[in-house]
Design a protein around this nucleic acid. Structure first.
Lengths: 204, 204
DNA sequence: CGTCTCATTGAAGGGGGTCAATAGAAGTGG
DNA sequence: CCACTTCTATTGACCCCCTTCAATGAGACG
């Protein structure tokens, strides 16, 4: 597999796959975070998935629904052309099994997020988001009970992920700051003073 | 496959798999609609998937996230015990391929629904729901441009599917009735007078 | 006919959206 | 180094959509 693959680096905000287009390649996310999003005709946007290192990324077979793929942060990918991957897939039941497992995990994650979007209020959404990032982000560190990490998304992307507006996201973050659950520095860096509190505030 | 499988009939509202439990079986939905739902500790509920005939249903391998499975209507299933299915799966790459494809379709559907829950208003949610049912329900009929079908869900389940309250669902249905887009009889039966209008009202 | 379940409709309130102003951080160029 | 711009985030004021609470309606069934 490694023979045919090539590493590629992208800066944040780069469009990897445009809407309506078929995935031209498959990839492992080696570094960074990639966002999958959907857009309505009038411009409303919803992020429907985040791929963290070392997630696998791609969409074999024909898909009815369209998706655009963008690097949320600076990103390093290990890519393999679509055709070659599908050829390997047809020859290796073991690879197919791994792909099935990954897809099932993404389906679970997507369904978990449906609950967040459908049934949680703004405060719970933001708390759930912070907690999820703390669990998935590679660079998360814990010292003396304080969990620290960088948010991979801008406020605008966070809003599009949570089905909120940037203003509401900002207000909820300020509320968490005032209540002493978190501290924020440089807009993106989060120190969670009480991770259990945060998990609880997420609602589940 | 048909040798080991057995048909089972359930009336609506029957719990097939309880929360936290692993799927004890795999099944084809032969008739009816099955709902997959998640529930928050305080009782808030979100339906995260609907399985129509002839969908395949099951969750191989260990899953972190929990799900409860219930028949939304009277249902006929063709079931096969978990262990036997997984044995077959390991021996048949072709079956695994079919399962992968089905899982990818469900992932697409789930992501499409994320947009509906995150970014659409009540009117668009209800219209999207009606349109989706009209496309998936086996018994949908069209005569002289009028598309007719029965809703598989109660108002309460519809609300849990759309992330709304029953009152809002009811009000939006009444609005569609008044605007002449649909007609409702016996609470569950829908005649869509203008399917294009309904699709448009769904937002995408 | 009474009861139970399910759905509709109305009135009032609140959570989050919208609009707008301000603040901060990061460049850019003189 | 400092004005100037630009991009991003915060904060406030107002408003509206949806929720909440409550009453009524409509079938189904004993």
């Amino acid at each position: 597999m490694s023979k045919m693959s090539t590493q590629k680096a992208y800066s944040s905000g780069h469009t990897l796959v445009a809407d309506e287009e078929e995935f031209p390649f498959f990839a492992n996310v080696l570094e960074g975070v990639v966002k999958l999003s959907k857009i309505l005709p009038d411009g409303r946007q919803q992020i429907v998935g985040l791929q963290f290192a070392p997630d696998f990324m791609g969409r074999p077979f024909h898909s009815e629904s369209s998706l655009s793929v963008e690097s949320a942060t600076d990103t390093l990918l290990c890519t393999i052309p679509r055709r070659q991957f599908e050829e390997m897939l047809s020859k290796s039941p073991e690879l197919q099994n791994r792909l099935l497992k990954q897809t099932l995990i993404e389906l679970d994650a997507s369904r978990d997020w449906l609950v967040t979007l459908g049934r949680k209020n703004a405060g719970e959404k933001v708390s759930s988001y912070l907690f999820m990032i703390s669990q998935n982000c590679v660079h998360t560190q814990e010292t003396e009970g304080v969990v620290s990490f960088d948010l991979p998304l801008t406020r605008a992307d966070t809003a599009d992920f949570l089905g909120l507006t940037i203003e509401t996201v900002s207000r909820q973050l300020s509320k968490l700051k005032k209540s002493g659950t978190i501290e924020i520095s440089h807009n993106r860096h989060i120190d969670v003073l009480d991770i259990e509190e945060l998990k609880l505030a997420g609602g589940d």
